[in-house]
Computed example of a mutant assay.
Amino acid sequence: MSKKAKWLSFSIIAIMVVVLAGCGSSKEGNTGGNSKASDNGMTITAAGSTFVNPLFSKMFSEYNKLHADIRVNYQSIGSGGGIKQLTEGTIDFAASDAFMTDEDISKVKNGVIHIPVTVGAEAIIYNLDGIDKGLKLTQETLADIFLGKITKWNDAKLKADNADLSLPDLAITPVYRSDGSGTTAIFTDYLSTVNPEWKEKVGQGKSVQFPVGVGGKGNEGVAGQVKQTPGSIGYAELAYAVNNNISYAQVRNKDGNFVSPSLEAATLAAETAAANMPADTRVSIVEKSGEKAYGIVGFTWALLNVEYDDADKKKAIIDLVKWAYRDGQQYSEELLYAKIPEAIAKLNDTNIAKIQ
Score class of each variant (00 low, 15 high):
residue 2 S to G: 14
residue 6 K to M: 07
residue 6 K to A: 11
residue 9 S to M: 13
residue 10 F to D: 11
residue 15 I to M: 14
residue 17 V to F: 13
residue 18 V to L: 14
residue 18 V to S: 10
residue 24 G to L: 14
residue 25 S to I: 15
residue 26 S to D: 15
residue 28 E to P: 10
residue 39 D to V: 15
residue 39 D to F: 15
residue 42 M to I: 15
residue 45 T to K: 15
residue 46 A to F: 04
residue 47 A to Q: 07
residue 50 T to W: 06
residue 51 F to P: 00
residue 54 P to W: 00
residue 57 S to A: 15
residue 58 K to C: 10
residue 59 M to R: 11
residue 60 F to I: 10
residue 62 E to S: 10
residue 64 N to R: 13
residue 70 I to E: 02
residue 81 G to R: 00
residue 89 G to D: 05
residue 100 M to I: 09
residue 113 I to S: 06
residue 115 I to H: 01
residue 116 P to M: 07
residue 116 P to D: 03
residue 117 V to E: 02
residue 118 T to H: 05
residue 120 G to C: 02
residue 121 A to T: 01
residue 126 Y to N: 08
residue 128 L to M: 02
residue 130 G to N: 04
residue 130 G to Q: 04
residue 131 I to S: 06
residue 131 I to Y: 08
residue 136 K to Y: 12
residue 142 L to V: 10
residue 144 D to C: 11
residue 146 F to W: 12
residue 147 L to G: 08
residue 150 I to W: 07
residue 151 T to R: 12
residue 156 A to I: 09
residue 157 K to Y: 12
residue 160 A to Q: 14
residue 161 D to P: 12
residue 161 D to M: 14
residue 166 S to N: 15
residue 167 L to E: 00
residue 172 I to H: 04
residue 175 V to Y: 02
residue 176 Y to G: 08
residue 177 R to W: 13
residue 181 S to H: 03
residue 183 T to S: 10
residue 190 Y to R: 01
residue 191 L to M: 08
residue 191 L to D: 01
residue 192 S to F: 05
residue 194 V to R: 07
residue 194 V to H: 08
residue 195 N to G: 08
residue 198 W to T: 05
residue 204 Q to H: 12
residue 205 G to L: 02
residue 208 V to N: 04
residue 209 Q to G: 13
residue 212 V to P: 00
residue 214 V to E: 11
residue 216 G to M: 09
residue 216 G to E: 04
residue 216 G to H: 09
residue 220 E to I: 04
residue 228 Q to S: 13
residue 231 G to Y: 08
residue 232 S to Y: 01
residue 233 I to W: 09
residue 236 A to S: 09
residue 238 L to M: 03
residue 242 V to D: 04
residue 245 N to E: 08
residue 246 I to N: 05
residue 247 S to K: 09
residue 248 Y to W: 07
residue 249 A to S: 11
residue 250 Q to I: 09
residue 253 N to P: 03
residue 257 N to M: 11
residue 258 F to L: 05
residue 258 F to E: 06
residue 259 V to Y: 04
residue 272 T to R: 11
residue 272 T to C: 02
residue 273 A to G: 05
residue 281 T to D: 00
residue 290 G to C: 03
residue 294 Y to N: 01
residue 294 Y to K: 00
residue 295 G to A: 11
residue 296 I to P: 00
residue 298 G to N: 00
residue 307 E to M: 10
residue 307 E to Y: 15
residue 308 Y to T: 02
residue 308 Y to L: 00
residue 317 I to L: 01
residue 319 D to T: 07
residue 319 D to H: 07
residue 321 V to I: 13
residue 326 R to D: 13
residue 328 G to S: 04
residue 331 Y to Q: 00
residue 333 E to K: 10
residue 336 L to A: 02
residue 340 I to P: 02
residue 341 P to Q: 07
residue 345 A to P: 06
residue 347 L to F: 10
residue 351 N to I: 00
residue 354 K to N: 09
residue 355 I to G: 06
